[in-house]
Amino acid sequence: MLEAKLSEAALLKRLLDAVKELVSDANFECNEEGIQLQAMDNSHVALVSVKLYASGFKRYRCDRPLPLGVNLGSLTKVLKCAKDDDICTLKAGDDADILSLTYEAKSAYADRIAEYEMKLMDIDADQLGIPDTDYDASVTMPSSEFLRIVRDLSLLGESVRIEVSKEGIRFVSDGEAANGNILIKQNAEASGKKKGSIEMNSAVTLTFSLKYLVNFSKSSSLSKKVQLMMSNDVPLLVSYAFNQGHIRYYLAPKIGD
């Protein structure tokens, strides 16, 4: 059985927000290390991978590996019934056909305990073997900055070309009616406070669909920083780390011309 108690429902709400438009159904793989979700979107262009460490929960117990097949739309609805700061407990039995969620209010004036149950399903998902990659470039930047850039450029065109060079990281969008490019220079330590970093072994140029990057940026609510890992001709890794775990996205590049 699984019993996992989170100190704030907001974490799950934000995670669902950051996943549900890419994937409609997914297995939450629970084991003693924590809860993991890995799924590709229908078009096999993007993959999302979420990990919640057992240590990130107030209480965590999972006796044996348990895949919970979740319809993310249904879970989103059930989570809407929780207040952001409610304590949230997930429970499932070994038959994994029902997920129960309990929300406990933290407010001092009343003890509210709400209980919900949702049906689980059998999901036969592809398992992707993600190879360990030594990336040629690694860029860390404020997640709000990344959100702003991809949202702005998505107004102009469908794609963005990302160029990492000695100069810094440049985002270029060539739309039919307008184009734009944004350069973030290596030296962003003006205030003495390090806002980001660019590490590069060799120059990288890759082109991606902006609609996916805009979607990934929903994770900005989970982490103040985002890390972009790139090598020529391999999928981009977009990684957001937070106290209780991480969410990572892989995105296949556009190729040829």
Binding site: S43, L128, G129, S209, A252, D257
Partner: peptide, 14 residues
């Protein structure tokens, strides 16, 4: 324009 590749061609699917 450039064509969209798929993850399957980079990652092994089983």
């Amino acid at each position: 324009g450039a064509g969209q590749s798929r993850l399957d061609s980079f990652f092994g699917v089983s």
